[in-house]
Design a protein around this nucleic acid. Structure first.
Lengths: 286, 286
DNA sequence: AGGTGTGAACCTTTTCACAGCT
DNA sequence: AGCTGTGAAAAGGTTCACACCT
C-alpha cells in the first residue's frame, strides 16, 4: 500500500489497550512460526523455547522473541512458550479463526495446480469458486468445483462472502480480472501473473512471480561464479548484444570480479545442516 | 545465507573498479524492471524516464533511480534511460546472458504446472530435466521432457551443467531432495515445499509458500474488518479454542480495535488505478 | 540455571531534495 | 527545461546483551 501514514496516531490512542501496528516484517514471519508450531504440536511437544522454535522456522531466536513480544505474547521465563496457546494467538492475529473463502480466477496450467493444492485447505482457506473467461473451460470440474464464467463473479462473491482473490491468468488478462474482483468486493489479491496491478486504496495485492525468483537466484549464481571462476579481472562474456547503441561499458566496469569480502547478500539463513528436519504431512502435488 | 560479513573489505579493494555488493533489496527489484523494460521495448519505446519506468514496475522513481545508479547505470540527464541498453545491463548483472539450466524435482500437481510454465523459458531459463521419486511418474513425458528417477540426478546434473534446482515435492521429501541436489552440485534452490531447508554455506535457497502468501493477506483482511466493523471495543470472536490451557487473554487485550491511524503496513504500492496497464504476452497456464 | 522480554546499538532501505549534466 | 545521480535525513528492521522472572 502507499498510504503515507497520517503521521499522528502511533501506538495507543483512546483507552483501548491495543497494540495495533505489527511491523510488516513480523507479519510476514508469523505464518512461518505457525507452520513450525503445528509441526511441533503434531510431535506432541507442549512447550518450546525461542531457540527451538526459531530453528524450526529458519530464523534466529532474537528475531523470534521480538516478533512474539509484539503480540504481547505469553511466554514463560525459564520455560518457553506454550505451543497450543501460541498457535491460537497467531491464528487469531492472522485472522485465521474463520476459514476464509477464496476465489481463483484462471484455470490454466497453474490455476489447475492451485485449485488442487491441499495446503490452502489445511491452512485456513477454502477455495470457494473457480472462474475463467474461456467458455471452453467453463463447466469443467476440478477437485469438486465447477469452473464458472468470470461474469458470474459478482453474484458468487456476494453469496460466498469472498474477500480474497487469486489471479492465475495470463498477464494480459490480469488487470481486467483485478478490476472485476475489486468491483465484486474483493479487498485482497494474490497475483501470479507477471505484471503490476493497479488497484484502489484499501485493496492489498501480493505478487508471486516464479521467473523473478529464479532470476534472483541467477544473480547469486552469477556472483558466485565470478568469485570462484576469475578471482581478479578478465570477464568471460559481456552481455549478449541485443541491438543497443553505445558500447556496453558498464559490465566491463566491474561487477564481475569481486575483491575480497564474501557475499553477505544471501537469501536464506543457511542452517548448519543437521538435526532438525521438521517433517510435514502437507503435500504440494497429487 | 548467514555468512556474517568478515567486517572488512567493503567496496573496492585492489585496483579493480568493481561495484560489487548490490543491496539485496535492489537485486530483488531488478527483475521487475527488466520485465517492464521488455514491455516497453515491445511497444517500440527507445528511451524511458525514471518516472515512467518506475510506474511500470510498481515502485517510485526515487527508488528506481537509486537502484539503477547502483549498477553504475547509464541514463542521460534531461532525457532518460536507453531501453535496450538498460535491458542488456540488467540481464548481464542478473547473469541472464546465458540460458541457465534448471532441474525440477517433483512432478505432482504443482510440478506439472511448473514444467509447463512458459515464463521460465521466455525469461532466461531452460528446464533441463524433470525428476520424481515415484516410479509411477518416471517415464511420463511432460512438455517434451521425460520424467527421470531422482537417482539419476547426479549424472544428469553433470551432463547438463545444472546449477539451479526447483523443489516441488511434498514437505516430507523436500530436505532429502535438497540434500541430493546439493550433492549433485546445485548451488541455488527454489523451494515450493512448506518447510525450512538446511543447506551448506554457499548454497542459496529461496522459498515460495503459497499458503503463507494468503495468510499474510488474511492478516490485512482481519485488520481492515477490525477497523470498519467495530470502531472501538467489543471483539466479536476470540480465537477458536483448540485445547490450550490458560484463558486466552491476549486477543482480548486488543489488536482488534484500532484507534485512529490508518494502515500503512500494506503490501503494494497502490497505484492510482488509471493509465498504464502494461500488457504482456506471457501466459501462465495453457 | 534457564529462558523470555526489551532497551539500545547497528545496519539496511526508503525517501527527500537538489546539484549538475544535456 | 527536464531528468538523472546522489548526499543526507528518516524510517524500518535486525542484532546485541542483559535485566528480570520462574
Amino acid at each position: 500500500m502507499s498510504q503515507h501514514r497520517p503521521a499522528g496516531t502511533p501506538g495507543r490512542a483512546g483507552g483501548v489497550p491495543a497494540l495495533p501496528d505489527l511491523p510488516e516484517a513480523t507479519v510476514a514471519r508469523l505464518p512461518e512460526y505457525l507452520r513450525a508450531l503445528h509441526n511441533l504440536a503434531e510431535t506432541g511437544d507442549d512447550t518450546v523455547s525461542s531457540e527451538e522454535l526459531a530453528t524450526a522456522a529458519g530464523v534466529n531466536s532474537a528475531k523470534l522473541r521480538k516478533d512474539l513480544s509484539q503480540l504481547g505474547s505469553y511466554g514463560t521465563r525459564g520455560v518457553g512458550y506454550d505451543v497450543a496457546l501460541l498457535i491460537d494467538q497467531i491464528e487469531f492475529v492472522l485472522g485465521l479463526t474463520q476459514r476464509r473463502a477464496v476465489a481463483l480466477v484462471g484455470v490454466g496450467n497453474l490455476g489447475h495446480a492451485l485449485a488442487g493444492y491441499a495446503g490452502f485447505a489445511s491452512r485456513g482457506f477454502r477455495i470457494a469458486a473457480l472462474f475463467d473467461a474461456d467458455p471452453a473451460q467453463v463447466g469443467e470440474e476440478i477437485n469438486g468445483l465447477v469452473v464458472q464464467h468470470i461474469d458470474d463473479l459478482p453474484r458468487v462473491a456476494a453469496e460466498e462472502s469472498i474477500a480474497i482473490g487469486v489471479i492465475a491468468t495470463p498477464a494480459t488478462a490480469a488487470q481486467s480480472v483485478a478490476d472485476q474482483l475489486v468491483a465484486a468486493g474483493v479487498t485482497s489479491i494474490l497475483n501470479f501473473a507477471p505484471c503490476v496491478l493497479a488497484v484502489p486504496d484499501g485493496v492489498d495485492v501480493r505478487k508471486v512471480d516464479l521467473a523473478i525468483e529464479l532470476q534472483i537466484l541467477s544473480f547469486h549464481e552469477h556472483r558466485k561464479s565470478a568469485l570462484t571462476g576469475l578471482p581478479a579481472g578478465a570477464v568471460a562474456s559481456g552481455p549478449a548484444a541485443s541491438g543497443a547503441g553505445t558500447a556496453l561499458t558498464a559490465p566491463a566496469t566491474g561487477l564481475t570480479a569481486l575483491p575480497g569480502g564474501l557475499a553477505a547478500t544471501g537469501t536464506t539463513e543457511a542452517t548448519p545442516a543437521g538435526p532438525l528436519r521438521p517433517s510435514n504431512a502437507e503435500a504440494i502435488g497429487s
